[in-house]
Nucleic acid binder design. Structure first.
Lengths: 241, 241
DNA sequence: CGCCCAATCTGGTCCAACCAGTTGACCAGA
DNA sequence: TCTGGTCAACTGGTTGGACCAGATTGGGCG
């Protein structure tokens, strides 16, 4: 029963999405034992291996804890899940919508500013000139926001790589692939930042001159243009409790 | 007798680790097609299902790209992998040597400072008092660094949660579970920070009084104590000044 | 030469069985 | 009564083989 419309998406992927959403929405409460693999297979009319592949992914995402012989338990994803889950949160069916978009942009601003500072401090001369060159090329990008967004991402990648910080680079991948290019953040909301060609060029110059403080400040100013300026509404009791 | 470590790691997990390391070390070059599932199964003398579970995890980690009918391709993890991979990088057999430890601490400092600022700006009165209380309890922690480290993590979790930024919270999980508590960063290297009880208390007070700038500065100062101050010279490629 | 199709690669799914830990009910003995 | 051990019934882990489905390739035919 409960035969859903079978899309052309892999069965195990559909299962993963379904189970993930059940966990994220609390349908499967944290700490509770998860439905047994055989039972899930029967419930959805699929093979147990498909279930296992889905569960394996849940395990890797640290949404569940599997133990041989014992039952698979649901974990508290807010305590265990990693940044990569943010992407999935954005795409989850019961879209949290919430401030995840703002959160991602805030994190991007924080990481980007520090990456710019580190890049100014540590990047090689070749990298610096490459960044300056890319910024110059950024000027030539058409008024198309999508095109600008792509160039912006490519340019920032150079900066983050130049920072020499691998953690920043990996986090950058997560944020970009997950929430920026994936259309989670509409480009028109970032128009102010993307159209600030001069800001890009100036930042590139500051990096090239190894002006750490200047680069950080410029990056922060540039990136802040896309961060929703919290139209107040400071949730007194709303947020977390 | 003396079969001390009854290491019974699942076959698929061993396979995942092995293939992951092959990719991270470049043995399996980016862009190259990966060995076929049937071939891998034969090579390691395991069932194909086990191979599939391992590949499924590689796919989720964005280390490979799987296409039905076509060959599974190895991706350039530096461009596609997410922050969660940082953990795995640290544990990877052929440890990339790279100062991943420094990178993680830098990122922690950046995220932590901004989280403190946001927490001061947005956290509820209840959360603020909870943070102050936890800081007061931090004072009572014994001189044991491990105990201090645990309390430190728990305290910072409150701050990050109070910031209301889900991306920060998830990144915090990744950094903590992956590189801090996992022993990747020896606690003695963080002694200066962990023993700065006063710094914790002061930061808590600043958050409670909604002093954004003060909280950010205090957090940055506190966290900076654990960041290696770049003993390595910036790798300039020589040449002109 | 260029198109089309079929053999044959690849991954995706299924069935059925068995291995290996965990749990808890149950019963014999101290 | 309490302790200890056995055993059945779960749970996840692994195996084998078969088949479905999409992609690739190369040869044959127009």
């Amino acid at each position: 029963m409960t035969e859903q419309p079978i899309r052309r998406e892999a069965v195990s992927d559909q299962l993963f999405t379904l189970l993930r959403d059940r966990i994220l929405t609390g349908t499967l409460a944290a700490g509770a034992p998860m439905t047994a693999e055989r039972e899930l297979a029967a419930e959805f009319g699929v093979n147990r291996h498909a279930v296992r592949e889905a569960v394996k992914r849940l395990q890797q995402a640290r949404l569940v804890e599997v133990s041989h012989g014992g039952r698979t338990r649901v974990l508290d994803w807010r305590r265990t899940a990693g940044l990569d889950l943010a992407v999935q949160l954005a795409r989850a069916t019961g879209s949290p919508t919430h401030d995840l978009r703002r959160d991602v942009l805030e994190m991007r601003a924080s990481i980007g500013a520090d990456a710019a500072r580190l890049c100014a401090a540590r990047c090689s001369r070749e990298t610096a000139s490459e960044i300056v060159g890319a910024a110059a090329g950024y000027v030539g990008c058409g008024p198309d926001l999508a095109e600008l967004a792509a160039a912006d991402v490519a340019w920032w990648r150079l900066v983050v790589e130049g920072s020499g910080n691998l953690a920043y680079l990996l986090a950058f991948n997560t944020l970009v692939d997950g929430s920026l290019t994936a259309g989670e953040v509409p480009t028109d909301l970032r128009a102010a930042e993307l159209l600030d060609i001069e800001g890009h060029v100036r930042l590139a110059a500051l990096i090239a001159t190894h002006d750490e403080d200047g680069a950080e400040a410029a990056a922060r100013a540039l990136l802040a243009r896309s961060v929703p300026t919290a139209p107040i509404a400071p949730e007194h009791e709303g947020g977390q409790a």
